[in-house]
Amino acid sequence: MIRSTHLPLLVTLATFVLAFALCASAYPAMLSTRVVANLLTDNAFLGIAAVGMTFVILSGGIDLSIGSVIAFTGVFLAVVLRDTQMHPLMAFALALVIATVFGAIMGALIHYLEMPPFIVTLAGMFLARGAAYVLSTESVPITHEFYDTLQGLYWRDPSGGRFRLIGGVMVLTFLVGIVVAHRTRFGQNVYALGGGEQTARLMGVPLASTTICTYAISGGLAGLSGIVFSLYTSAGYSLATVGVELDAIAAVVIGGTLLTGGYGFVAGTFFGILIMGLIQTYIVFDGTLSSWWTKIVIGGLLFAFILLQKGLTWATQARRRTATGSAAPS
């Protein structure tokens, strides 16, 4: 029997397969490893950030700060590499620590001050964006040989697709995310928190550490996403990645995670990202469509998925009503 909790994930998968089939039938050239490789490369930063967002949404929260954190990390790296002799690896580590601590502080505020995540991370969004402006209002190019080395790393598929490093980082992030969500006590606590805070408290879930860790992960992954974005664009710009948090939320929801928390899968978000990337690619292939069609299709998809989730909730409730009493002991 197909579990109702798995159904949104299956719908996401089916949507992806259907979308790919449609694209391929219109433009057979899209059925190449080159397109797949580009899909991974172009969406790497978004995908990494979306993993963090998945954890936050699973726990019943939201993180609006990640777009700003990505931009801040990019500007921070660019300015540090321009003005100091620090090795990029050291700068990466520093950026990750800053982003993680930033997330952890937001998590602590949310938990201890009992503030809505929406408000706290909105403040975080303005703070991080403002900090990026303080560092530089200009776009700062990054020219470092280590960057060239990293950007030159790829595995070339025999048929021509270049699977670059950053795409690999994204896939690895997803794999780690899946294991953490489903095979660790922390991951189970995140689901528990999303299922009901009061109940989770009564069941002994450490609410403080779970909340703080969840937002620290989201912040840290936004930092990693910023590093990947700087590798992708070779620059740091404080106006970059505006609204990426909303793209990440969209990917998470299209990936079948319930916005109210508790239900969903990290793997679903991966396909959510791919679906959104696919739409973009289709529009590029078409050439005549405005790129705003991406937004329209994503909007439509979001509505469809929200309706699906609502329908599923109703269906489960109806089933529960009829099932009461029928599940007798044997």
């Binding site: 909790t5 528990a192 299922g195 009901g196 989770a200 069941m203």
Partner: peptide
């Protein structure tokens, strides 16, 4: 009120 989590 059963204090278990419905999503698990």
């Amino acid at each position: 009120e059963v204090n278990l989590l419905p999503n698990l």
